[in-house]
Amino acid sequence: MSLDRFVSLWPEQGSHYAEQVDWLVIGFTGMMALFVVPVFVFLWIFVFRYRRGRAALRDHRPDGSLKVEITWMLLPFIGALVLFVYSARLFFEARTPPADALEIQVTAKQWMWKFQHHGGQREINTLHVPAERAVKLTMISEDVIHSLFLPSLRVKQDVLPGRYTQMWFQAERPGTYDLYCAEYCGTDHAAMGARLVVLSPSDYQRWLEGAGDAPSLAAQGEALFRQFGCSGCHAVASVTRAPPLQGLYGRSVALADGSRVVADDAYLRDSILLPQKQVVAGYAPVMPTYTHVMDEEAVARLVAYIRSLADTPPDPSPPHTEDPQ
């Protein structure tokens, strides 16, 4: 069997971002070699020339060049500054997903990866995405800290319990790529792997159509919204008044302590599982917690439903400040 099966001189590049990261690593390594290699070369030259017993001039009078010293300081500084600007641009790019990115919910659990598409398709340890399109992963863990790592795309992000983290990528070429957990998470950490299957846009559309006719993630969230009785307080016609959800997502919300917060995914999740954490101004803190009642996948569906109400005009009626109990 060929040694190339076990040793790869250069990792596979599955995206344009991976190429940029590789050039950054090459540039940094080259600059380090440019300034470190001469030091070791001259070190061995001097060791050989001035070894014991060899006749050599050992006059230690000071002798230097200001131009050489300034050049030796400026060149590393300029090189480091160029690498800093380049790496800062890559960091900003990696943390700024495009507005039209395809969103997928990721839930990590010992020892598997669960993926939920907004069309309702669900996968375990396999993720299908289209090529040449930005994909944003909104991730959370059900137990311990995990880390989603796609070495071929040069992207990695920790997945934390109780907190959403995000990562995005754009695979340029169809193919199958390895996905790993890069954070030790327990006994079977080494077996917590998955596959990223990148399809052409037409093949991806066919995969979506063949993956089942399950309701969309938002529709599943609406079913949970009614199943758990959320509509009894948050629906427009409900008797018990609670903060309206129509037009809520992405809006600034005034809290009882006088602060304001943007109603994003993290805020909505905390409002479901930790309702006393950020109480909306004008409403009594009477909502029960759904911790240990809903898992993270159910919460993601509810959040998707509330997000679907973003374009609905908010309820213009004033809030009820009295305690409904």
Rank of each mutant, 00 (worst) to 15 (best):
G247I: 07
Y249W: 15
I26C: 03
G64R: 12
L199V: 02
A266F: 12
D315T: 05
F42M: 10
F77P: 00
H117I: 13
A218P: 01
L74W: 01
D315E: 04
I272H: 00
F42H: 12
L153V: 01
F84C: 09
A18Q: 07
F46R: 10
I306Q: 02
E132Y: 06
S216T: 15
K277L: 10
S252N: 09
V155G: 01
R226S: 11
H292I: 13
V262S: 05
Q105D: 14
G162Q: 07
Q110L: 11
I306S: 02
M294E: 05
A218H: 01
A18C: 13
Y249K: 07
N125S: 10
W44F: 15
S308N: 05
D59K: 10
A256W: 06
V159M: 04
D59R: 13
W72C: 13
A101L: 06
R226Y: 14
T107C: 00
V253N: 01
R58Y: 04
E142P: 04
D22R: 14
W10R: 13
A55G: 12
A235N: 15
W207N: 00
F169W: 04
W168A: 06
Q166L: 13
E142A: 10
T240I: 15
H234C: 09
A56H: 01
F42E: 11
S252D: 13
P324C: 10
G221H: 02
F228D: 11
G221I: 03
Q20M: 13
H320N: 14
L9D: 03
E69T: 11
N125P: 06
H16N: 11
D178P: 02
L196F: 00
D143G: 10
A18G: 01
R54E: 06
D143I: 07
M139H: 07
G247M: 05
R51G: 05
V37S: 00
R61A: 12
L148V: 12
E103S: 09
K277Y: 02
Y86D: 14
S8A: 12
V106T: 05
E296Y: 02
S152R: 12
P98D: 08
I145A: 11
A266R: 15
W23R: 14
Q116T: 11
T96D: 01
R122M: 13
S259Y: 04
D188T: 12
L81K: 00
E209V: 15
V299M: 03
Q13I: 12
V299C: 03
A190V: 12
